[in-house]
């Protein structure tokens, strides 16, 4: 039993390996992971907004198409989507980003995110009272103007907490880009840890990566929860006053 504990300690918690990989994780992996997360989130938000508008469209074919898009991307294992898009597009001759693996990585994760974000936006927009839109339309605003000047500003407040929650998932989701084979300087937290663990035949660098992910995600999770609670209290106060 003592032998077992020692082996676990050696395999996962070798302090020398952890200390050795940490500088690279912090200076190369962390910026790359954050950059990938931010780019993917921007793509996800932009596309997600368009898809959400489509989910709420009056034209059936548009709704149908957007629903299919969301179901497809949420229904597939993310690893499959990253692989199919990141490897598949260049293979199929659709080299929209040239040879930049990094761009395909960000794009494929952005696409996945857009499906989740579309659902978040749809729920947020649907939560905006119907009367608000009717008031806007009654004043002569087009559907698009009502969307832009009434639904969007009110919906944004509702969707900020879930969007931030989704961002936490993106941070973890970027680990999948190791599939696409990044150059040394492009590697994210997970890729670096994985390479290191193979070289050392030891998993302690993955533990180091895990600690780094936790340091990012746990504080954010609590911040989002506190934020959500505050918003809920705020909106309840608003209702009582109205």
């Amino acid at each position: 039993m003592f032998e077992g504990l020692r082996r676990i300690g050696e395999t996962f918690f070798d302090p020398q390996i952890i200390a050795g990989v940490m500088p690279q994780l912090l200076t190369v992996g962390l910026p790359n992971t954050l950059l990938l997360s931010v780019i993917a989130t921007i793509i996800g938000i932009a596309l997600g907004l368009v898809i959400a508008t489509g989910l709420l469209a009056t034209q059936r074919p548009v709704r149908f198409f957007c629903r299919g898009y969301v179901d497809l991307l949420r229904g597939l294992p993310h690893i499959l989507t990253v692989y199919l898009i990141g490897q598949g597009l260049p293979l199929a001759g659709l080299s929209i980003f040239g040879k930049s693996t990094y761009a395909y990585a960000a794009f494929s994760i952005g696409l996945i995110e857009s499906a989740y974000m579309a659902e978040i936006f749809r729920a947020g927009f649907q939560g905006v009272e119907r009367g608000q839109v009717e008031a806007a339309r009654t004043l002569g605003m087009t559907r698009w103007q009502a969307m832009l000047f009434v639904i969007l500003p009110q919906g944004i407040r509702r969707v900020l907490p879930p969007l931030t929650g989704q961002f936490i998932l993106v941070i973890k989701g970027t680990a999948l880009v190791f599939l696409l084979g990044l150059t040394a300087s492009q590697r994210d937290i997970f890729s670096i840890a994985q390479d290191n663990s193979i070289n050392n035949a030891n998993l302690s660098s993955l533990t180091a990566a895990g600690l780094l992910y936790l340091a990012l995600t746990v504080p954010m999770t609590y911040a989002v929860a506190a934020w959500g609670r505050r918003m809920q209290r705020g909106s309840q106060r608003g209702k009582v006053a109205a």
Binding site: E129, G131, Q132, E134, A135, A136, R137, T138, L139, G140, M141, T142, F149, V150, P153, Q154, R157, G238
Partner: peptide, 28 residues
């Protein structure tokens, strides 16, 4: 939309734009 500019409507539950001030509501 052109037609609706000629026809004003007031609702039972007001439906003021909740993210805007009084003057922004009227000016939007």
């Amino acid at each position: 939309d052109k037609l609706r500019v000629r026809v004003g409507m007031v609702f039972q539950h007001f439906h003021l734009f909740s993210h805007l001030s009084v003057i922004e509501n009227v000016a939007l």
